[in-house]
Design a protein around this nucleic acid. Structure first.
Lengths: 186, 186
DNA sequence: TCAGGTGCTGACCGATCGGTCAGATCGTGC
DNA sequence: GCACGATCTGACCGATCGGTCAGCACCTGA
């Protein structure tokens, strides 16, 4: 009764990931049910839970590449200070944001609660260190406003202008971010 | 059995609003149940629904002042063009964002789906017109990146640095926003 | 004294959630 | 032909969701 059509490749795992990414970015993580994902894939909810231990595991696997890229960026910035840290942080962060813009748009909503989950603790810690680099290692609250605005602005722009080609979106973001962070002179 | 303690003022309505604002900003709209709100207020879930028609009505009433302020800002910016529109948009939007930073932090998460609701359609329309003013009425996609980044950055900074005094947060935001939007030199 | 409105409660409703489970189907190696 | 693991299904579970409802306590004015 199930031999309705050819089932050439059982790459359901990847299909579930893709469908979940699509749904999460539209209706959010909490706003997307396993039923929704299963419907979009064209399988049963039980099939989704056959490929993934639970709902959170889908999100975790979806974000894994972006998280490890963020960790690599953090390691690269760690030894730098001052303007060197700032300029490297700008270009490298923008490059990362553009590359993983889909993942960013997933987390862009529901940030506060989702990041609470232990699986995403690396994101929170590395983001703080990225802000640190963007602030030129300054710890003055006033110096932290611009970096935060830059991070949020880049994330929002990546989510909003996701259809723009990388080599158009990236340089524009670098330009605005550099301007926003002000004269890197002294 | 209910005469347990003095019940001087039945201002439960306002208490529900305050509790909902606190919970929404932490766990989001969908992530907060009526039970959560009732527990924080110290009343029953039925009491919450006695004061508000439904869950969405709480959010709507919570956002009403901010929405009308945004509409007033839009009306003020409408006749302006070019750099006049841009500079007015910067200062007035920042002032509005600082004043309603709590409401902004509510909507900051779950934006994509929440704004879909008819009650918040004004927000979406006015925000687009605000971006229009910030872009100096340009419709080039590249000119729209910086304004979007500014809006998102201001919103994020308001949500993050909510404890800073207005007269410290506001000018800092104006400075960064002006820089990000580039030389407004006429 | 008592009628009536306000504020609120506990019990309950149907729907939906994430997740489990026994078993059906299918391809493959022996 | 057959055992077996991988894949997947429908039925089902308890929990929780937003929302409803009958009724109780309390206050106030007639």
């Amino acid at each position: 009764m199930l031999d309705d059509m050819a089932r050439p490749i059982p790459e359901t795992h990847a299909e579930i990931l893709a469908a979940a990414a699509r749904r999460f970015s539209v209706t959010g993580f909490k706003g997307t049910s396993l039923q929704d994902i299963a419907r979009e894939v064209g399988c049963s909810k039980a099939a989704v839970l056959y490929h993934f231990a639970n709902k959170e595991a889908i999100l975790t696997e979806l974000m894994a590449p972006a998280i490890s890229a963020l960790e690599a960026l953090d390691a690269r910035l760690a030894p730098l200070t001052g303007d060197a840290a700032r300029s490297a942080a700008i270009t490298d962060f923008v490059e990362l944001a553009v590359r993983f813009r889909r993942e960013i748009s997933l987390l862009h909503s529901e940030l506060p609660e989702l990041l609470q989950q232990p699986a995403f603790e690396p994101i929170q810690r590395r983001t703080e260190r990225l802000l640190d680099a963007l602030a030129g290692r300054s710890e003055q609250p006033a110096d932290r406003i611009a970096p935060l605005m830059v991070c949020a602005g880049v994330a929002a722009a990546c989510a909003e202008f996701g259809e723009l080609p990388d080599d158009e979106l990236g340089p524009a973001l670098v330009t605005v971010a550099t301007r926003a962070l002000g004269h890197p002179t002294p």
